[in-house]
Design a protein around this nucleic acid. Structure first.
Length: 423
RNA sequence: GGAGAGGUGGCCGAGUGGUUGAAGGCGCACGCCUGGAAAGUGUGUAUACGUCAAAAGCGUAUCGAGGGUUCGAAUCCCUCUCUCUCCGCCA
């Protein structure tokens, strides 16, 4: 969430930035500032009255101690008066504050200067492209066909046991998944990320902290019995580790990683690119998260992007990097790169990673701050990236690595799998 | 699921209606002491918000959360929540 203190000084800048998302927030921001002003004015009065009341209460105590009950009783009357009048002010403050917060929740993060303007995914900017398709002379079959033929994934079984979007991986398919998870985690911990095994269910506060709530309530599976949410990404539990923390500047950046299944209801996206592994309700992902010093976060974003790029290169996948335009940028993000692999059989690009800098938008909700050498306390920046999401990576691997001999396994995965080809 | 106990500062831990933002200890920071260190010793050590050009200062709030009683609540009452222990069930 945007800081009201920031908006006080930079309202025009904020309006300008939000235009990149195609949002005209001028009225909302003006309204927020009015509410803020009202809150502060009422607060000042309220606090003055409280101060007096506290003073009186104190002196009443003194008077009783010294046996001057008469005087004390006179003061009580004045104190009661103050209490009455402060009550209305208190209500005013609470109402306005609530309205202000609600309004602030609806405002998305300000896109960074680098964000191209645009209204949808077609306006995203391709900033990098790399790689080739191996075994080019061989005709490629879509992954859902080859995976079924080779007995790697059973979609029907998933339908039976749970429902659409919950496939079973089996045999070499399951092994392939395990190898990928292992490979991704190994690569992340090698460069200094601390591995976590995180809870898959989170409470409301955590959902709120990283911005899934209240905005995307309908996209998460909600266990109403216990008021817990199935995580849509490891970002939620792993970033929330640091909720309500004041870190030491020296400890930054903090690099964390974790593998988790991810659960997404994908409400409203039925019928769109849902074949095979392209869009699932449950999928596996290794996430990398960094808590950063504000002055370093863009450097770190590039570093995280490089990490994900390198994974794809090691896997020998053809991929490209997109810089998301304002219209396609997530609610909480200031700048996002998407990585897409090319799927040779479907002949299209599949998103396998999203690397974002949230600046202090999440940190403000999380109350995640750091203290510098002078004792000043400021909000951290938070970043995360998929490194990587499994199903589409697997889809591309199954499709791109086909030859007449079978499905080849990229060299980097062979130690994790113990085989070099699925025949 | 049943029964009980408990949530106080970075941590441990006192406090039962009146200078308690909170004793004491540990930890941490800085200083003294020392050749250096330990020990010892002194000082300091929460956060948010408001006020102020800013700092200082001042004010308000915060002892799990919310509400209530009272002139005054960490302390009394109510509701919720979380944690722990025992029993039951169970990977």
């Amino acid at each position: 969430m945007l800081q009201i203190s920031f908006l006080r000084e930079n309202s025009e800048f904020a309006v300008e930035r939000l235009k990149v998302r195609g949002i005209d927030a001028a009225a909302d921001i003006a309204h927020a500032l009015e509410l803020d002003k009202a809150v502060r004015e009422a607060k000042t009065n309220f606090e003055a009255q409280k101060a007096e009341a506290n003073k009186i209460a104190k002196s009443i105590g003194e008077l009783f101690k010294t046996g001057k009950a008469e005087e004390a009783n006179q003061l009580k009357a004045r104190s009661s008066e103050l209490k009455e009048s402060s009550k209305t002010l208190q209500e005013q403050i609470a109402n306005n504050q609530e309205a202000l917060e609600k309004l602030l929740y609806t405002l998305p993060n300000l896109p960074s200067k680098q964000v191209p303007s645009g209204t949808n995914e077609n306006d995203n900017e391709v900033v990098f492209e790399f790689g080739d398709i191996p075994y080019q002379n061989h005709k490629k079959v879509p992954h859902w066909e080859i995976a079924t033929a080779k007995n790697l994934i059973d979609f029907e079984l998933g339908n039976k046991v749970t429902g659409a979007g919950f496939p079973f991986y089996k045999g070499y398919g399951a092994l392939y998944q395990r190898a990928l998870i292992n490979f991704f985690l190994t690569e992340a911990t090698k460069v200094g990320y601390t591995e976590y095994q995180a809870p898959l269910l989170v409470n409301e506060d955590s959902g709120f902290g990283t911005g899934q709530l209240p905005d995307k309530e309908g996209q998460m599976y909600h266990v109403t019995e216990d008021n817990l949410y199935l995580i849509p990404t490891a970002e939620v539990p792993i970033t929330n580790i640091f909720r309500n923390n004041i870190l030491t500047e020296m400890d930054l950046p903090i690099k964390s990683t974790g593998y988790t299944p991810c659960f997404r209801r994908e409400a409203g996206s039925y019928g769109k690119d849902v074949r095979g592994l392209n869009r699932l309700h449950q999928f596996d992902k290794v996430e990398i998260v960094q808590i950063a010093h504000p002055s370093k976060s863009y450097e770190i974003l590039e570093d995280m992007l490089s990490h994900s790029k390198l994974l794809l290169e090691k896997l020998g996948l053809k991929y490209r990097v997109l810089k998301l335009c304002g219209g396609d940028l997530g609610f909480t993000s200031a700048l996002t790169y998407d990585l897409e692999v090319y799927s040779a059989a479907q002949e299209k690009w599949l998103e396998v990673s999203s690397v974002s800098n949230f600046e202090n938008f999440q940190a403000n909700r999380l109350k995640l701050r750091y203290k510098d050498a002078d004792g000043n306390i400021s909000l951290c920046h938070t970043l995360n990236g998929s490194a990587l999401a499994l199903p589409r990576v697997l889809a591309a691997l199954l499709e791109n690595y086909q030859s007449e001999e079978g499905i080849h396994i990229p060299e980097v995965l062979q130690p994790f799998m113990g085989i070099s080809i699925i025949k």
